[in-house]
């Protein structure tokens, strides 16, 4: 990612800054200057909003063939997460065994390195998520979608 392309969205990535639409009373992430549901009326009615960073796992998947730049994590958990304010986001869930993540689990945001341009290029930082406040059974999970005969 080029320097200006990353820099322009620093606060969106670092601090989960999105938008609040005054017309429909809805939250949006990433930042939008226009709410597709409210149409043209929403232009000028979108306010910056910092998300609390808490949410719920909608659907997780364990990635065994890593995305470029994520090789050191493999296997890792990617999930669609619903933030408590409503919008959904696709993020890695870190600091856990990837197959322990289940739909409905609570997550919170953490500040992490997202990647780098190259060994000599700039570093990209932003938000990922960790599990918190869930009772995780550390035994081998029988329900793991990986093991079950589907």
């Amino acid at each position: 990612m080029s320097v200006p392309r990353f820099w322009r969205e620093l606060d969106t990535r670092y601090n989960l800054i999105g938008s609040y639409c005054k017309i429909t009373d809805t939250y949006h992430y990433p930042r939008r200057s226009f709410n597709p549901e409210a149409g043209r009326e929403s232009i000028g009615s979108m306010e910056d909003y910092q998300f609390k960073g808490t949410g719920t796992v909608v659907t997780p998947t364990v990635v065994h063939q890593a995305q470029t730049g994520y090789e050191m994590f493999g296997p890792y958990c990617m999930a669609i997460i619903e933030l408590d304010e409503g919008p959904r986001i696709t993020s890695q869930i870190v600091d856990c065994r990837p197959d322990t993540v289940k739909s409905g689990m609570r997550v919170k945001s953490v500040f992490r390195k997202l990647g780098e341009d190259s060994e000599s290029g700039i570093l990209h930082y932003g938000t990922k998520f960790i599990l918190f406040g869930n009772d995780i059974d550390d035994e081998l999970d029988e329900d793991s979608i990986d093991d079950v005969e589907l």
């Binding site: 994590f73 870190v94 600091d95 500040f111 992490r112 390195k113 997202l114 930082y125």
Partner: peptide, 11 residues
């Protein structure tokens, strides 16, 4: 972790 460094810990 692979995504942690001085900056993320400081933050």
């Amino acid at each position: 972790g692979p995504d942690e460094d001085v900056i993320t810990i400081a933050v």
